[in-house]
Amino acid sequence: MKKTVLLGALTAAAFAAGAASAATLDDVKARGKLNCGINTGLVGFASPDANGRWEGFDVAVCRAVAGAVLGDQEAVDFVNLTGKTRFTALASGEIDLLSRNTTWTFSRDVDLKFEFVGVNYYDGQGFIVPKELGVSSAKDLDGATVCIQTGTTTELNLADFFRANNMSYEPVPIETAAEARQQYLAGACDTYTTDASGLAAQRAAFETPDDHVILPEIISKEPLGPLVRHGDPEWGDIARWTLNALVAAEELGITSANIDELLNGTESPEINRLLGTEGNLGEMLGLEADWAVNAIKAGGNYGEIFARYLGESTPVGLARGLNAQWQDGGLLYAPPFR
């Protein structure tokens, strides 16, 4: 133990120089496992099932990358991270990929020296109110008491929104989502505000979900996405294009059900290129030709993953909204595979 600490101190300088992050792909291949940072538990995004297998929307990204790189969606070591430990874990090399509902912001990308590889969920801050309050718009919330998690960006967004609309509010500070639920249901506040996906998940677990409505206004932009370290563009490319492959697969109609059939060759050159039956996209990434096939087989295309963990048939019950494909009026727009 002492040896490692000593070595660590000695090499700290070398690490600071950024020598650490070269060739993540080789490390992952040598290890045979992807180290992926996920939440310690967030409804729909990351949670363990009864057998201890992690499931969720963010987890699916990890599994897709593991599929693309190692050909096995189970070859992932999940590292549970809190909001405080997530960035150090990524910067220090403890994890290769962080997929933990992290908002893409300027300072995180530039100042913290990370590389957001895309957006897998466009979230935004919303409000939930009891139906009996008779409020149909967030603009009607003047003078309301608001349950708000302290120390988050949501707190700042809330202040901005009320100031911009010349309204006043009384904050009820809370610490955790569980506390928020208790306070809100006990009537300690008129409305509770957090990310809309979180509100939907909370509401699903109310005893009478229909007595509560999520207001239509979304007052902030919260693009959540997976990220990697600066300094290894090749690894960043792999993560970025794996995510793109999932989105493109939905656009092109490739699903986990029909992918084996499509592998026999199709009329569409783009599908063929994506699935590796034509061209050498995999080779360019330093991966096998069937990298995207394995990524898609891991959990299906983007639409399938969304439907399984967040969609309207799940307790979370989210509509696609901004997260629909661009043809359907959403923001998902994968660059061409060419």
Partner: peptide, 18 residues
């Protein structure tokens, strides 16, 4: 605990598994 989880991580050479 934060020192154990965060700081040591930065001081140790990448790849060491402490």
């Amino acid at each position: 605990l934060f020192v154990a989880s965060v700081l040591l991580n930065i001081f140790m050479p990448p790849g060491t598994n402490f």
